[in-house]
Write a protein that binds this DNA or RNA. Structure first.
Lengths: 339, 339
DNA sequence: TTGAAAGCGTTACCAG
DNA sequence: CTGGTAACGCTTTCAA
């Protein structure tokens, strides 16, 4: 059996309540007693049981993050690693741990949210990849469960969210390509309903208004392989685009692969701008232009908010916080004269 | 206040114990009562509190994974995403969740292990990135805490571990380069003491024995940027290698970048083989040859073992399980005649 | 088959 | 300032 507060109390000849106070750093414990108890604790290698503590204090010290991905489709995704890495970076300085789950289906989503919230497995949730009419959000609000959304809540509700202005970012990226002299700029997004994709497509449309007649919009799945397949079809067409905005770097890498196979060279045959500004951008010749989402800042802000909500501390700033984006121009979007 | 078993019991006019039995699927509950209780549960949207359950049943349903990385250095690492993704893939079909933590220092490692084991925050641990004389292992064994090591335990102890034969894999990779006609094959590993790196360097040395005089061994940090810097120095030297084995794909990408800057072309100026066979391998021209570690299998085996240990089910097979590797030859290591 | 009751290890309240 | 004690919500033993 492991050593409990009861044991420590007996050995130190104090009450169990006092041991608890020492542990909590209660000021009104005699220094001498505190010292004695502390020593007994160390001598017997005592460690409080988080489970008992959780039951009593109604806090788990866990933050939940549920990802929605097809089986095996996670390793492909640099957004995911950046997200998780930045969350972990943040939590390192805070007394919380990350509880990570992945589900494949919408039904699974709901079930796991039940498992995590209603059963109080975690103190709060970070939501990502919100889709229009997100069922999770209504449920969370109804249960008054602490959560923060990374993305666009699509409502005027008092939902705490942190996001980029994806419409503006895509508009800027598209304009940049048009300004570089590209004439048939297209956009490759995810399936309809994925908020971040919809937002960026909206930005694209805003940018080409009056400057380009055809709306060249494609919907693909996440991942470089899926993107490569879609891109092969796109680029094989005789009315193919001469530049593309792509939803993320990894999909863009698929497009790069497809371009290579099609014998098209970047940037003159195909201009490219994508999103995330991950380290993948340095892996192709002359670099891949990409919009930085400033994930570390964004995630930090999101986590800070979530912890405030959980701990019932006041929140500064608006419910919906916008982190500015930044277009990092590299070779893939800069037309070269000496073509 | 949320609804408890007590509430359900009162409403259904049964004892709380019976509600618990219904929940546990106890066979000897009258079908009629079971039905009544089940309906009341649903009607009142009852969800058991995991925390109370954990305290009583001494199970948390959580698997711990602690990563050791410098701040911000996680997003760079494809091994990490593959590992986490594969763990999540496995856990989806099992009643466990993943609790993920990151630490930067060795001291932090110890502290967090204390926090996770001794406080019983998780039911078991997955260990990775073991270094020689791993303090964590001794501690875990002493506490009889369930764990499984992904990597080389370096001892004959009864440690449950799953690993590749990294010595053999590196030997094969090096031989492949020598067979392709490269004459100065080097290896870029991590810092000394990282088991997987040490093992691969040993394999390299075994391969060049009798076939190449100079041992060209470099130690770099993880990540493509660090690798690129080291590689720039290496490739600037007049006695530079004509081929390299690199510890992982991301570091190899750094080497590719350095080669490009140095005006060296793959594969004839510089042959390259790395490890992990991640999707990065398709991102360079003609592809990057890489050793597949078969992570999904490996992780699956590791998780299966861990769950068996936790649940005290018998373990089949040896304590140390070796997952075979496979060299995936692509363009970066195949010398071309028409140079 | 069901109910009563004893914990699990902690926190926090209330006396003293 | 300290000790006794009542929860927290559940599982499980023991009787009935």
């Amino acid at each position: 059996m492991r050593v409990t507060q009861q044991d420590i109390a007996k050995i130190a000849s104090v009450s169990q309540a006092t041991v608890s106070r020492v542990l909590a750093g209660d000021e009104k414990v005699e220094p001498e007693i505190r010292k004695r108890v502390t020593e007994v604790m160390r001598a017997h290698n005592y460690q409080p049981d988080v489970r008992a503590r959780q039951l009593r204090s109604r806090r788990t010290g866990l933050i939940g993050l549920v990802l929605n991905r097809p089986a095996g489709g996670l390793g492909e995704d640099p957004f995911f690693s950046a997200l998780v890495a930045d969350i972990l970076d943040f939590l390192r300085d805070h007394p919380y741990h990350l509880c990570l789950d992945m589900v494949t289906s919408e039904a699974g989503q709901t079930a796991i949210y039940d498992d995590m919230l209603r059963s109080r497995r975690v103190d709060g949730l970070i939501l990502v990849e919100s889709e229009a009419r997100d069922h999770r959000i209504a449920r969370l609000q109804q249960d008054k469960f602490p959560f923060v959304l990374i993305g666009n809540p699509l409502t005027g509700d008092e939902i705490s969210s942190v996001d980029n202005d994806n419409v503006a970012a895509a508009e800027l990226a598209t304009r940049h390509l048009l300004d570089q002299g590209f004439r048939r700029v297209g956009i490759l997004g995810a399936r309809r309903g994925v908020t971040v994709s919809d937002d960026r497509i909206a930005g694209y449309q805003r940018a080409i208004r009056g400057r380009q007649h055809d709306h060249l919009i494609w919907h693909g799945d996440f991942g470089s392989r899926a993107a490569q397949e879609v891109a092969q079809t796109i680029l094989a067409d005789c009315s193919r685009p001469d530049a593309m905005v792509v939803l993320d770097d990894f999909m863009a890498m698929g497009v790069v692969g497809a371009a290579r196979k099609a014998g098209l060279r970047l940037p003159n045959d195909l201009g490219l701008v994508s999103f995330n500004d991950s380290n993948l951008c340095d892996l192709i010749d002359r670099g891949l232009s990409s919009v930085s989402l400033r994930m570390p800042e964004l995630v930090k802000a999101a986590c800070d908010r979530l912890l405030r909500i959980i701990e019932e501390r006041p929140i500064d700033g608006p419910h919906r916080l916008i982190i500015p984006t930044e277009l990092r121009v590299r070779g893939s979007s800069q037309r070269m004269e000496a073509a």
